[in-house]
């Protein structure tokens, strides 16, 4: 009896692998010799078989979702957010600069009738030089020399030191052209108000002005005067434009890089 129990003990250990065919030839023979003689072990094997069958019959659980890795954000390089943000920031900057420069140009045009006329004129001139000059402005520029030129005749640039003493004369002379200019304005009302209004005024101050500019603008050679002033006046505008262009090119490069990185990852996934 004890011997039989011991034998069963050895056999029950083998029943599970026996069921799977995972026993050696020797073990298999042991089990198969034992089973017909031992009802208990036979029943145990049968129950084991049922258990395994019940486990196999367990349903496959449906997944709540797919576990495929949702790629793009995860595999984008870590610097991508910086690149993207930099692009947006630069875009905002370029836009702001563009709007700001537009605004500056608009306001400088509208503020031209103010006494800062000489500056204003130069701004208009440099503006018209930067932007394509409109026919209106060209007209104005052509008209300009004709009016003040005769009156503001006297000295060339070298006359600068004389300026204070020579001032009264040109100012007296300038009144004539101013009248003429006013007449001119009335004659040609279709030209831009700001532009045309400005020209005579400039002539006035240029003629009657006390500043160092008087001699140069009082100079008969109108053509030499504007370039001299525009050389002084242009710098504030030109670098700005250069920065704008530079920023825009940088924006193109950054934006291109951002899109390239993004697109590559999109394609890659």
């Amino acid at each position: 009896m004890l011997d039989r129990e011991l034998r069963c003990y050895g056999i029950t250990e083998l029943l599970s692998p026996y069921l799977d065919g995972q026993v050696s030839e020797d073990e298999r023979r042991q089990v198969e010799e034992h089973l017909p003689r031992c009802a208990r072990c036979g029943r145990e094997l049968q129950e084991l078989r049922v258990t395994v069958q019940a486990l196999r019959d367990l349903p496959v659980i449906a997944m709540p979702r797919s576990f495929a890795l949702a790629a793009q954000p995860r595999t984008l390089p870590t610097f991508f957010p910086y690149l993207r943000n930099a692009t947006f920031a630069l875009a905002a900057m370029v836009l702001t600069m563009f709007v700001a420069s537009l605004y500056v140009q608009m306001t400088s045009v509208s503020s031209m009738p103010q006494p800062k006329d000489a500056v204003a004129v130069q701004q208009v001139e440099s503006f018209s030089a930067v932007a394509s000059p409109t026919s209106r402005e060209l007209e104005k520029l052509d008209a300009q020399p004709a009016l003040p030129a005769p009156a503001l005749a006297p000295g060339p640039m070298s006359a600068a030191p004389r300026a204070p003493s020579g001032a009264p004369a040109p100012s007296a002379a300038a009144k004539q052209p101013q009248d003429e200019a006013n007449n001119e304005v009335q004659k040609a009302p279709d030209t831009a108000e700001t532009g045309t209004a400005l020209v005579p005024q400039r002539a006035t101050t240029a003629g009657g002005g006390v500043s160092e500019k008087v001699p140069s603008s009082g100079d008969g050679d109108e053509k030499s005067a504007p370039p001299a002033n525009s050389a002084q006046q242009a710098p504030p505008q030109w670098p700005l434009l250069e920065i704008e262009i530079g920023a825009f090119i940088l924006l193109l490069i950054l934006g291109g890089a951002t899109l390239a990185v993004f697109w590559k990852e999109r394609r890659g996934t």
Binding site: L15, P17, E47, L48, L55
Partner: peptide, 8 residues
């Protein structure tokens, strides 16, 4: 074997 026996 032990797991199956318990399950049984």
């Amino acid at each position: 074997a032990r797991g199956r026996a318990r399950m049984r």
